[in-house]
Amino acid sequence: MAVPSYATPLERVWHYAYLAICVAIFFFLIAPIIVIMPLSFNAEPYFTFTEKMLSFDPEGYSTRWYESLLTFGMQAPDAPRDMSWWADAWANAKWVKAAKNSIIIGVSSTIVATSLGTLAALGLSRPEMPFRRTIMAILISPMIVPLIITATGMFFFYSNPCELLTIFGLTPQCGKLAGSYLGVILAHATLGIPFVIITVTATLVGFDQSLNRAAASLGANPRVTFFRVTMPLILPGVISGALFAFVTSFDEVVAVLFIAGPEQQTIPRQMWNGIREQISPAILAVATLLVIFSIALLTTVELLRRRSERIRGLSPQ
């Protein structure tokens, strides 16, 4: 974007001022994320750059907060670092436990959200789908309804899921879902579904339905058509929808606060504790790791998006 040749001097000045403003806004966007990275290597328990850090003195930096992620909650953190030390960390360290929980819950809820969501997106993209707009609005609503309301509703429902059946005059007994992995997984699947619907229906826009008919006319049954024709074409959209669903679950804390028990503490839940109680640079170490994780996810999604656009011939490359 260059200044046009007919620009007046004032317009030239404005153009450069505009670029400066844009740089400042980009700085506002990215600086908070960048600044925590060096601070997480702080040797002191402070949240600001110490003299030693600013003079690049190696003594000002340390990896003690990263180590504390492993040792926090361990039974014998000071024992010699042999196999049993690592086994102890794997079994007892709070952050390791939280990471395991986050991955278990994230992956399971992503599988539920992606499989149900992709099926529904296929139905929603058919021109003959009845009540398309209303149903779409209902399916997207978990993203719009304030999380605190969703979590509150789920808290009551999951405490006694069978209460629903009393409307029909039944009084069955069933265990509660609150405080169980299943409860958290179902809640997170619900929250991830809108993202799957949005990305997969976006991929299906411009999907040539005659390809399905062509496959059928060549003798493929619906199952074969789906797996050999439709699926490969919409796969990039499905994967990025799945990644969105995973990130939603991986980042979610309100539903976990309300539904999860002490056994289902996830990384965000553990961070919430850390921020509210004794905030230490260990939080920044976790945050840095999470930023690196999101950079990896972002790269994957961008690559998928480009691939999808190339496959469907939407962008000339």
Binding site: G123, R126, E128, I135, I138, S141, L186
Partner: peptide
Amino acid sequence: ARRKAFLLVLPLLAFILITFVVPIGQMLQR
């Protein structure tokens, strides 16, 4: 064709109704 399209959406719709719409309705009843 309409029924087929609807059947594809039905599992998810039921899922959302049970895990999301009904709990919120129950909560609002309070």
